[in-house]
Design a protein around this nucleic acid. Sequence first.
DNA 1: TTTCGCAATGTTGTCGATAACATTGCTTGC
DNA 2: GCAAGCAATGTTATCGACAACATTGCGAAA
Lengths: 372, 372
Amino acid sequence: MTPTEHPSVPSADARGDDERSRGRRDARPPTIYDVADAAGVSHQTVSRYLRGYEGIRPATRARVEQALDDLGYRPNLTARSLKSGRSLRIGALTHEISHVGPSRNAQAASIAAREAGYVLDLIFLDAHDAEAIRSSLDLLAQQDLAGILALSSTDEMTRVFESTDFRVPTLIRTESDEIGRAGASELTGVGIPKAIGHLADLGHRDFLHVAGPENWSAARNRTRAFEFEMARRGLRSSGVLAGDWSARSAFEAVAALPDPFTATAVLAANDQMALGAMLALKQRGLRIPEDVSVVGIDDIPEAAYFDPPLTTLRIDFASSGRASLQELLALIDPALATKPELPAPAELVVRASSGPAPARTPDVGEPVRTAC
Amino acid sequence: MTPTEHPSVPSADARGDDERSRGRRDARPPTIYDVADAAGVSHQTVSRYLRGYEGIRPATRARVEQALDDLGYRPNLTARSLKSGRSLRIGALTHEISHVGPSRNAQAASIAAREAGYVLDLIFLDAHDAEAIRSSLDLLAQQDLAGILALSSTDEMTRVFESTDFRVPTLIRTESDEIGRAGASELTGVGIPKAIGHLADLGHRDFLHVAGPENWSAARNRTRAFEFEMARRGLRSSGVLAGDWSARSAFEAVAALPDPFTATAVLAANDQMALGAMLALKQRGLRIPEDVSVVGIDDIPEAAYFDPPLTTLRIDFASSGRASLQELLALIDPALATKPELPAPAELVVRASSGPAPARTPDVGEPVRTAC
DNA sequence: TTTCGCAATGTTGTCGATAACATTGCTTGC
DNA sequence: GCAAGCAATGTTATCGACAACATTGCGAAA
């Protein structure tokens, strides 16, 4: 089990400059014409073979197969898509891939794309300013894509996206519906209402929401659902704090709240912010969950190992990534449309960070304790 | 500040089936021939203009520009790369993008690629089995790429990668050198030696390492550096636990350790595992950092908000992603080779999870406490 | 003034594949 | 026995751009 036992794998300089198992390095890759010559047939016969045409005499077929194999032929997709006018490449745009949600999403979409025979080009938009986004999109628009998927959507992106003529089908994922929608939360089984219901059942009446950045539609949806549900159930909202998805933003926002801290339940718009909020609460001298319950959204893999382990809404990012891709494929080729998979509804994972509401307002103004 | 004040941005159905600001939906995109017709010149003149040829009469030039603009011309990169034989697309392979390291890496590489005029195609390899990897690579090999970059490398991937003939330059990133190398750690400023030095300075003598999966070269390198440094400094290693990068694996490994727990310092191969290890330690009744110090690697954004905040090695993933891309670009076109950026050395970020070694072996066998 | 030279621009061929159309050579029906 | 019919295969055109070569036209040198 010690690392010295591992087979020593050459790690660096993996390009084979010198010799290769097969295929001459400098020679151009073989084309169907080369294959045709080698097999003694016309290039069109080779093309037909490659496209799966049935009516080829067994003898001819055998020679083509032999030549194909001898030369190590690989089709040139560039040429194919130039002629056929269709490409098998889908562009996907995303912002912060280091967040678990977007990245799971992208990964699932990528795999779904591959299964459908497409390759997913993932494009990172680093900047929030419209000009930078536009230039990235322009580059993208030249790439001969079959369709374009916008995975995480800020308003800037949505705006630029909608004003760009990509000339191919595009789809903007909103990531909202499965989590909680204001107008439809009589469906009490859905996402945020479920989380709030859990806390309300535990006796909580005074809530605080740590929201994501307001230019993200996902954040806005979560905030709306929170407020809607507060109103619907007649609960008290102690406020909505503005975060930016990061633990840091939530930590600072919660730390900066004036005393007294009246809420007994905190709903953070993602797990990272729940983490930051928990640390700030602990540093204010509040115990979790005895004094304050904290609930997150996403269920990132680490959430179960926070201290205390986080109660959170599990979002099925993978299935929603697949679903958006399928939806886009349906736009690209309505004939191939399969009924898009329905993303699984968010599921509440109850862990130790939520518990019964305290009998009375927790003490405030106690000396700050260090954690544990 | 309430969400209802946000401008209402249309969120769904962003494809414009009906009308578009410009550009007819069904019409093929304009080609240089269309532009040439509109400008009353030959297509070659348009092509020359686009390639930046100087010797075009101002009057002609103006008409071309006008036509270009009127038609909203965008070059067709497929055709361009078919003819010119070179593509501006780079493939990048990665495993678990949801880990911060790989994803930052990929993001930085993507941005660097764009700056060099390339587009980075990110391919997710979900499976660890060689056959699945091979089929993905085969698909990739047809994609007319200028080069291929393997970002996170497991042994399976390395093996398949090296036995595939991509016919373009390829580069496997090893992610090891800047973190700690066994053979070269007399450079005491480097990564893991730095972390261990910090703990040794605090009086720690008995260490535990929570390693990443052994088929990842990065994990192996970290383990080697740990063991090398233990030996070099004459410190005691209480063992190397096998983890899989996840908080869960570290939690379970540490929880399963037999009593007594003798180590006073734990080095985890990434921050997620440090998190899992911390929770397991706390549940064993050990205090952090009074009884045991814990140090991670990566410095994920959440690490500062763990409880206690995590001392960790900050890895500059962005710069190493850029560096690998530049290295690949140099292979693609040696003429354009810039001196590749050197990734910043890992930097130790000291937070509250590390402290002086306890005077004696901490108590073990105490009743398990619930966290906090 | 005539011709050469070169700048500006036009025409044709090419990349690798697919599609439309053309050809070959059996089999089959009368 | 001969033509029609069709299966198997070959030939040519095409996608959009770039490149090589061809042409035009104007100014300078003889």
